Each structure stands twice: as C-alpha cells, then as structure tokens.
Amino acid sequence: MQAKNPLHDNITDIPGIRVGHDTNLEAATGCTVILCDQAATGGVDIRGSAPATHETDLLNPIHLVSEVNAVLLTGGSAFGLAATAGVMRYLEEHQQGFQTGIARVPIVPAAAIFDLALGSANVRPDPESGYRACLQATVGPIPQGNVGAGTGASVGKMFGLARAHKGGLGSASTRLPSGILVGALAVVNAFGSVVDPDTREPIAGPRSADLPEGLSFQQAHPFSNTTLAVVATNVALTKAEATKLAQMAHDGLAQVIHPAHTMFDGDTIFALAVAQHRPDPSQKAQLVSLLGATASSTLARAILRAVQRAETLHGLPAATTS
C-alpha cells in the first residue's frame, strides 16, 4: 500500500497552498500571505461588526470572478491593506490572475487586524511587506505565534489592553479517512478571551486577580479587535459551497473565543477550495456539511495554537508566562 504523505498539521498540507510571513517585531506588526499555486474557489463570511477588508465582495456567489490567487491577512488596520499591492505585483510577475483579455489581474481578498496600540502605530505593512511575504512562502511547516499578521495581536481586552494577553498566529489541519484534507490558519486578536473548549476556563484573557465580575465593555476600543482566518480544503467546491464552508467554520471561533463576533471585532473567515477531489454531485450536500464541521474543529485548534505559541512582546505577556 502506498504510504501517505507526511502532514505538517497546518494549512500548507492542502496541495497548492503556500504560506509566507513578513514580520516586524520592533514595530509589532506584519502580514501573512496564503498563496494558491493553482487558482482556488473562494468564499468568505464576515461575522464581526468592525471589519477592515479588501475585495471581499468578489467572493459573493452572485459575482463573476470565482477563483482566488491569494489571501492576505495583515496588521496595521486599514493602512495595512496596502500590502495587497505587493502580493499583486508578485502574482503578476508569475503570470497569475484573472484573464481580462488585456492583462491578468490577480485576485487577492484581504483583511486586517488593528495592532497599532502595540509597538509603533506609525509603521504598518506596505506593498514591500506583502511582496516579501510572498518570497517567504513555503509548502512546509510554517512559523507560528508572533509572526506575520499575528505579530502585534492581543487577546482578552474586555478591561483594556493593559490587562490583555499576547495573541498570535496559529495553524492546523485534519485528514479525513477518505484522504480529504481540511486546513485552517488563524490570526487571533480578539476582544474576548481564548478558552479551553472542554472546561471553558480562560487560556488567555484579562489578567489580574481583582477583575470585576462578568463582562465589561466600558474600556472596549471599537477598532482594536478581530480574529481572521482562512480555511482550505482539497475538494472542488462552488463559490456558494465555499461560502458555506466559511460560515460553518465560524463555529470553531465561537467554541474557543468568548465572547466572539462582538460589535468591537471584525471577525472574518475566508474559505479556499483546491479542486483535487471531485465528489459525486449526489453526495455534495453531505460532504459540504462534513467539511464545515471539520473546518470548525480544525480552526478551533489553530486558534488555541496561536495563543499557546505566542511569546511576550513589548511588555504584553504570553499566556504561558502570566
């Protein structure tokens, strides 16, 4: 029997997916690119009420373009979306993009976290940052924690940043018995706490023994939070099915972040489908449901890994050192 290819337990286990980071620890910011070496069908679902995004409308099932060349996750708030230009330049150089008949236009949906309160607010990812991230892209194990878009992330800000923990970037994957793969990558910069899914006890949340009881929104900053994620599979999906995959993956976010999807978060999940497996159409609904459930649990693991691998930065402590 042919041996299975070894898995790295991250999103690069999906064939054709590469991930690269550009990291600035001094400024506490960076960006992460998920490159699709073969164009992937894309979907998106935005649940948070304070998103900073680019080209997400293209992923609506009623719109023309169905294939995505890359997804960019970035720090720097809306300023950091400028890094998309560098990703587009890299893709154009590699002749990837939507063929208009005149030129190829790379399709790069993007979303940003607000990380301006940690490090430097004046240094944000720019086109060169996006280009450098593409040059670093790999199909192998990827760095996690204080890297890329997770560099300046923080979590548990219900009582202000001074009591928060360090957030970060994490990734995980799952192989189903059929050989179908589901991967997830998360940038965790949540307003809420990251909790153990079994005990519901906080892993990374507000620090201090004298916290007031219950939740507080009095010190919440309306632009300083967001969890971003990309889930991917090696199954051929339509845009509507990829959108459903992104929608169901939000369950994983809600499993391990409390509270999630608040008015102060820009929670956004992208879905990518690489057409390696082409399922029987009569079984598609069952398969999409299975993929969604698997994406949910895989994303939950990626979120936990993001805070578990984060390290103290600029005085903001990691969960393991609090």
Rank of each mutant, 00 (worst) to 15 (best):
E55L: 12
I269A: 00
F191Q: 01
G160A: 02
T151Y: 12
S208T: 14
G30A: 00
D267Q: 11
L81R: 12
I303K: 08
F264T: 15
D126M: 09
T174A: 12
L291F: 02
A204N: 08
G214Q: 09
E55I: 03
A103F: 13
D45Q: 10
T138P: 06
S289W: 03
A172K: 04
T23M: 04
T100C: 08
P127G: 05
G150L: 09
V230L: 05
A78R: 06
L58M: 15
F79L: 15
G170N: 01
G97D: 12
L304G: 05
G292N: 11
G119P: 07
A28K: 10
T294H: 01
V155I: 05
A52K: 15
G150T: 10
V108I: 08
N189F: 01
V307S: 08
L291H: 00
L116W: 08
L272S: 09
P51Q: 05
F270G: 01
T268Q: 11
G119C: 07
A254H: 11
T84G: 12
V187R: 04
H21N: 13
G42V: 06
G42S: 06
D251R: 05
D115H: 09
L299S: 02
Q95M: 03
T74K: 02
A310W: 12
Q219S: 10
A149H: 06
H261Q: 09
T32P: 05
